[in-house]
């Protein structure tokens, strides 16, 4: 198990490194340059050329990559080209805020998604189940930005119950104000994913309920509550874990949209800024963090899967 975890961690490092090469290459393929972004719309060709030389943008690509990579090996993420400030605090502060948003969302998705899935499986065919199925289709099909705008128009502009922005520092707004700001973005972020997870749990729960071991449990006169919680649920949850790990990735994508619409100063918007401005050190640092988070989420899911499913654990080298 330890060896397996160590091997997987090494693979994460490899994935992150490959990603950095990919991002580096893609940014150089994009039209325009950071010098144009720094100097603005009215830059003279001469000023652009001077700045490109100063930033070392005319050096061979391998040298530019090595400059960045050797800095990274020393633990130095470099400085943002457009903001003239170190990248590390920018990225980690944004990560902290995004992690709050993403963590809350993921917790809600896991809790509510699983609960709803179980409920509709147990009450299959009921009105509640059918209503939920309809809602699931709607929430899976309609993209986040629609819910974001709708939530802002409805709860912020029309009813005035909640703020239209997603972030207020605790130091200024207090804990209650901070939490009030988080409500709409978290809800917008979770709607689609709750639908997704509850759908999966419902079908795997239905499958479990029709299995032979549930039949056996019922036949020996076990109370229905125990049948559900001891026999059906642990088996039905296995696919949910995989789905949650995948959803962690979808969540990272969704956060970009939600952060933009709700003016939330998180990692997603920092990445958008970095791409728009061709700010390579900022983009690379942000992407390293995102890739690592995603890879680790998958690793945790796999380990959890093993812990819950003895067949995989004893099989040794799954995945």
């Amino acid at each position: 198990m330890l060896l397996y975890t160590a091997r997987r961690l090494l693979a994460v490092v490899g994935v992150v490194w490959a990603m950095s090469l990919l991002v580096f290459a893609v940014v150089h393929l994009l039209p325009g340059s950071v010098a144009h972004m720094i100097l603005g719309e009215y830059a003279t060709a001469e000023a652009v050329a001077t700045l490109e030389t100063r930033l070392g943008l005319n050096d061979p690509l391998w040298l530019q990559y090595w400059r960045w990579f050797s800095g990274l090996l020393r633990g130095d993420f470099g400085a943002s080209l457009t903001m003239d400030r170190p990248v590390a605090p920018l990225v980690f502060q944004a990560l902290g805020r995004s992690a709050t948003l993403g963590g809350l969302a993921l917790a809600l998705v896991a809790g509510i998604g699983i609960a709803l899935g179980i409920h509709s499986a147990v009450h299959q065919g009921s009105v509640a189940d059918r209503a939920l199925t309809l809602a699931q289709y709607v929430f899976i099909a309609v993209p986040e930005f629609f819910w974001c705008i709708l939530a802002i128009l409805c709860f912020a502009a029309w009813l005035g119950w909640l703020p239209a922005t997603g972030f207020a520092p605790v130091s200024e707004a207090g804990v209650l104000g901070w939490a009030r700001h988080l409500v709409l973005p978290v809800v917008a972020l979770t709607l689609g994913l709750i639908a997704h997870v509850s759908r999966m749990v419902r079908s795997s729960m239905l499958e479990a309920l029709e299995s032979r071991y549930v039949l056996a449990a019922r036949a020996k006169g076990m109370p229905e509550r125990l049948v559900l919680w001891r026999h059906a649920l642990p088996n039905a949850l296995l696919p949910a874990i995989t789905v949650l790990a995948v959803d962690a990735g979808i969540l990272i994508g969704g956060i970009v949209v939600v952060e933009t619409v709700f003016s939330f100063p998180g990692l997603g918007r920092l990445l958008v800024y970095a791409i728009e401005h061709h700010d390579l050190p900022l983009l690379l640092a942000g992407m390293i963090v995102v890739t690592t988070v995603y890879a680790l989420a998958n690793l945790v899911a796999d380990l959890l899967y093993g812990a819950l499913n003895p067949r995989i654990r004893h099989g040794g080298t799954a995945a």
């Binding site: 705008i149 802002i152 128009l153 912020a156 502009a157 005035g160 703020p163 239209a164 922005t165 933009t260 619409v261 709700f262 003016s263 918007r269």
Partner: peptide, 13 residues
């Protein structure tokens, strides 16, 4: 606040 809808909602609220 990148989104105009959010800016206007904030203004109205």
């Amino acid at each position: 606040m990148p989104e105009m809808a959010a800016r206007l909602a904030g203004l109205r609220a």
